[in-house]
Write a protein that binds this DNA or RNA. Structure first.
Lengths: 115, 115
DNA sequence: TTTGCATATAATTATATGCTTATGTAATAA
DNA sequence: TTATTACATAAGCATATAATTATATGCAAA
């Protein structure tokens, strides 16, 4: 709060979290809108618990907001997080997600997973 | 070269490397000038091989230049690296290294380790 | 209330990581 | 040459990480 700059220790922690292909892609997808867990399940070739655990790590760090609506859970970037500026700075250097992700990341209207 | 933006896979790799307190601090120290290995040895409370291994990982990624001069080895940020812009973007969000590091990081004249 | 769906948690396992000590190598000094 | 200094590499070990399967929870529809 008091300082918009992040100390090395904390920065290393969040960079380690972003240093995983799956989590980094999740963050990219959430850059412009919230995502429903089921969207990630469609995209990533891994079990549902694996996805849930990645999201939990990101949420525990404070980088994500979680919102339950009915039986669904939506995650989004927490713009109030101390890491938000860093995350934005990183995302600004990344190429757009391609292929399968394109469809979803370009759909800024919101999830169309049926939720 | 063809694209200044980094793909998610590669970005995750370099972020994982930066997601270690020791390596992130090394990179911070090299932000404005090259550093001699012996400088890191003075700073970090760990064995010489541990430091050597951290530097090798960073160098293997392409993020660092290595220059041998006499019996000393100097490392510096590789400004031609595909990761350079990303690294700079990250460093721009970090607080200045403090305490013991201050002395060294503010000494832009060069190493005074006796080399 | 029972069933089903969406997601989370627990337990386990395989692999990766970061450190240590021991040893190797290359350059300088005696 | 031999010794010393600066650094790298190898091997081994303890811990961390990311995946899996099995199970639990919470909401909603029938």
């Amino acid at each position: 709060m008091s300082d918009k700059f992040i100390k090395t220790d904390k920065a290393a922690q969040i960079l380690k979290l972003l240093g995983d292909k799956t989590r980094l892609m999740m963050i990219q997808l959430m850059r412009h809108r919230e995502c429903c867990v089921c969207e990630f399940q469609e995209l990533f070739v891994m079990s549902q618990p694996a996805i849930s655990q990645h999201l939990r790590k990101l949420k525990d760090s404070g980088a994500l907001n979680e919102e339950k609506r009915g039986q669904w859970v939506f995650y989004s970037l927490n713009q109030s997080s101390e890491y938000f500026a860093l995350i934005e700075a990183i995302l600004g250097q990344l190429a757009k997600p391609n292929d399968a992700l394109q469809k979803i990341s370009s759909n800024t209207e919101g999830s169309d997973c049926g939720c």
